[in-house]
Design a protein around this nucleic acid. Structure first.
Lengths: 181, 181
DNA sequence: GTCTATATTCTGATAGAC
DNA sequence: GTCTATCAGAATATAGAC
């Protein structure tokens, strides 16, 4: 799959690589999508494990930057895994709730890292995720294997935190600002 | 393709929709990838046309924000077109140089819009494109058809310009003009 | 340009013996 | 669990008549 892409997985080839024959595959999985689901579940576990692991520092800003590094490294380390997990490139495949669960854990952890930096506004969380996913996209399509992204991260984190902190209004009673839930 | 995705295009179905038979398709295109290439070329033309069209204002900042709006609208208006143009989701297909040319025009136009705002640092251009592509990604996967992204654009443009202008070293004569809006 | 007919090769999936 | 054998259908593409 690394060479041919995620959609190039055929049961024949999978069986050949496993040293078995095609029908034997059906002794382990009931359909091709069941295989994708198992792969999705494993990838989601790996993702949650990477993103929620200990961060070696107490500085919230450094944790945030480290999280981006882990995210980009995780995605670029295994492109088919990234496509399966985030790009939904397989037709007629939807991950089961069980396989999807770890991804929710990882998202909660992200919200925690942002909250530790005083960021709870959904708009700001949207801006954050838009940038980090775009960073991966750009990295994969423009410079696979390179590390140009690494130097952008600290600069973006600084810019982002400075913006959020200056935009944050001093707490007042009777806040009339409209918010999007 | 809107219903089934870009990769679901089969020559049988295409011929059926065109009211002809499969071999007749080969009177017009020499292979399936030639069809993709023609689609890519047309999509790239549309893209360049949208992005380089007149902007109704002279304010560089407003032009920049308008460019993002056009980009997101263009991508979300036709998802298969977006996949073909930017996601490279078709195996064994590479656009020809001729089909790709208009996309280069559009990228040059982006660089012009950024330059009008004093932004020429490649790092900052990378940060910009990472965010805009991430915005589209997020929009398509989380909230297709919605307009949540629209409210993020002005905030991001403000944040981005403020950052780039403060990070910029004063050019030779100490002219450190800062815009406020 | 358009057709009928077909070649070739792939796909996911199953029947049934052992 | 594993196999041989096979199904039913999809895919892109071509031959050759008109």
């Amino acid at each position: 799959m690394h060479a041919e892409g995620l959609a190039a997985l055929s049961l024949r080839e999978l069986a050949r690589l496993a040293g078995i024959t095609t029908p034997t595959v059906y002794a382990y999985f009931e359909s091709k999508n069941a295989i994708y689901d198992a792969m999705f579940g494993r990838a989601a576990e790996e993702f949650a494990e990477v993103m929620t692991g200990p961060y070696q520092t107490d500085d919230p800003r450094a944790v945030l930057a480290c999280g981006v590094r882990r995210f980009v490294e995780f995605c670029t380390a295994d492109v088919p895994r990234y496509q399966l997990l985030f790009q939904r490139t397989i037709r007629d495949f939807e991950p089961s709730a069980a396989s999807f669960a770890p991804a929710v854990r990882a998202l909660d952890a992200l919200r925690g890292r942002l909250k530790a930096n005083g960021i709870t506004d959904p708009r700001h969380i949207d801006m954050w995720t838009a940038w980090t996913t775009g960073l991966v996209d750009q990295q994969l399509s423009n410079d696979p294997g390179g590390d140009r992204w690494s130097r952008l991260i600290d600069e973006f984190v600084d810019m982002f935190l400075a913006h959020c902190h200056t935009a944050r209004r001093p707490p007042r009673s009777g806040q009339t600002r409209r918010r999007s839930s």
